[in-house]
Design a protein around this nucleic acid. Sequence first.
RNA 1: GGACACGUGGUGUAACUUGGAUAGCAUGCCGGCUUGCGGAGCCGUUGGUUGCGGGUUCAAAUCCCGCCGUGUCCGCCA
Length: 634
Amino acid sequence: MEVNSLEVRRHFVNDLSETISTTYSEACKEWGTMQVDIENSIVIPKEEKGDFSSSISFALAKRAKNSPMKIADELAKALSKTIEKNGVVKKIISESGYINIWLGEAVYGKYVIDSVIKEGAGYSNSERGKGKSVILEYPSVNPNKPWHIGHLRNALLGDSISRIMKACSYKTEREDYIDDLGLQMAEILWGLKDAKVKGRKKYDQFLGEEYVRINKEIEEKKAEGEITSILKRMEEKESKESKEVRKIAERSVRAQYETAFSYGIYHDVMVWESDILSNELLKLAMELLAKKKISKMPKEGKYEGCTVIETNDADENGEKVKVFIRSNGVATYIAKDFAFHLWKFGLLGAGFKYSKFMEQPDGSALYSTSKEGEKLDFGGVGIVVNIIGSEQRYPQGVLREVLKSMGMAKEAESLVHIAYGEVGVKDGTLSGRTGGWLGEGRNLTADDLLKEMQKKTLEIVKNSEKIKEHANEEEIAKKVALSAIKFEFLRITPEKKVTFEWEKALDLSANSGPYCMYMYARASRILEKSGSQQGNLKLKEPDYERITRGPDFELIKLIGSAQERLEKACAEYRPDMLADYLIELSLRFSSFYEKMPVLKGEESKAIRIGIVLATRQVLYNMMSLLGIQTVEQM
RNA sequence: GGACACGUGGUGUAACUUGGAUAGCAUGCCGGCUUGCGGAGCCGUUGGUUGCGGGUUCAAAUCCCGCCGUGUCCGCCA
């Protein structure tokens, strides 16, 4: 039997609601089922108040025409009789209107530690998403520039959320959308001409710099008209431009993915905008809209010759219309995106052809849509998660609205937009057009951030006396650098805007990623010195009765809440909740071993080793969900 | 003009969806700790009228109404 905080909570709710319905049957009649109210009334109180607590008596007071204190007293008394002999719950008492329950340290501690050891890397995993499939889209960077720190935030969020959902048993599909037909690529095509890559620059870096130069040139030469015609020719099948732009884009994407791989970010499939056209997904989608009479083709007025959709929200001029197909026959971005989303949900009855794009460093295959290739089982999922900047709330809302008006309420509901706040810099923007990402000496790119961070961590690692194998210095420094960057980006609620500053970013003391790694390394060393391995803990016969109401049990409770924390983070798409949990865990662990010597613990030694073992495992599990790797020494 | 997001100690943030006990954590400042299982550490002190004003409630950072500030979006751009 696995007992964790979720189980305890569930039991508490059940016992409480049974007790209430018998003790206050009159009040309950009016209230109906109070299950939800009871669930919401349960919190984890301050240490000295107990392990779980309910404030339900306050809500009951009016109905039962009694004071909250008396109700809490009665309920606590009645509940005490339900305490099972197994001793997971030790006592239930009331205090100023609250009902507080106390867990039995030995019994609960044994359950928690035993299940961590038994489940290992799977401990805290959940089945909440069993049988559900999800497609996650990130970071969808235009292929005309390197990833800057804003794109990095997107990619790290997507990477972490997909890891989290996978740990919750969702069948995940990591997808990247490549916009190879956009204005930005047309501009590249116009201005790049015969330019060769100068020096040994990465191709995405080269394109990004060229793009800034090209934009100035376009303005000087007033070349907007020429670009529009290039844009149109790019969309034509088999045109010279369509082939050339795809070639440039593929080369650029390969360069961008070098960045992704250096951060440990992987995908399953990339979808090219040009393939949405070549595989006729757009045509099918528009036919479907026409058939359902959602789209209209005005014969006169402003939108003559267009295919449009009416929306609920009026814009500043009172217009309630969105153009899907322009009067010149060219589809708008939102039309392509809509067709794409019908495909994601499997509502088109057709799909792409795929070919293998490359093998990723982790050994997994990355597929890409293509004009020729085999049919594979991508798309057609139940949940769609898009990690896109908050500035795209409106178009994402339009997608949802059109789905709804097509009678696809379930899909509309399952279209999730992770609207993360933009990454800003103190002065200026990260604009690709004006080159705001270019800096002096170091750029605001994901590549340069990692490079700078590694420079810093390598210096620290080199001076560390704790590292025995100095051959691994580079590898350790890289993992520490990655943890610092990832933690810094992921610890903040996605919605919040962040302002990037080099000084702050490189300040390791302010970053908790390396701190968590440090705790893991210390735990590892304690275990090494104790001669303990995961397998032989039983041989040491830990005496669970030696768990005290102190830092040890506080730590155990925290370990026991791992699954609860994970499920919440998953339900709300919030990696920052796990970052928060990791900090708590690290702090508790730190104060635990500071106050309770493990190896000199005498009779308590075995159980304390068990606690260290469990902590180390959960640290490892949670860090993996943020994409952070551990080291044994640092 | 309309819609949305954000506003919490000096700084960065958590808790807001589901109202509960003294608003949690980090960082900074100040002070202390090392013959001790790893000092990238630990302990302590300082610092908040939760943007402002009303309302609901036994109880409001949390819910409602009205303001203020910052930002974003509303195109036959993507």
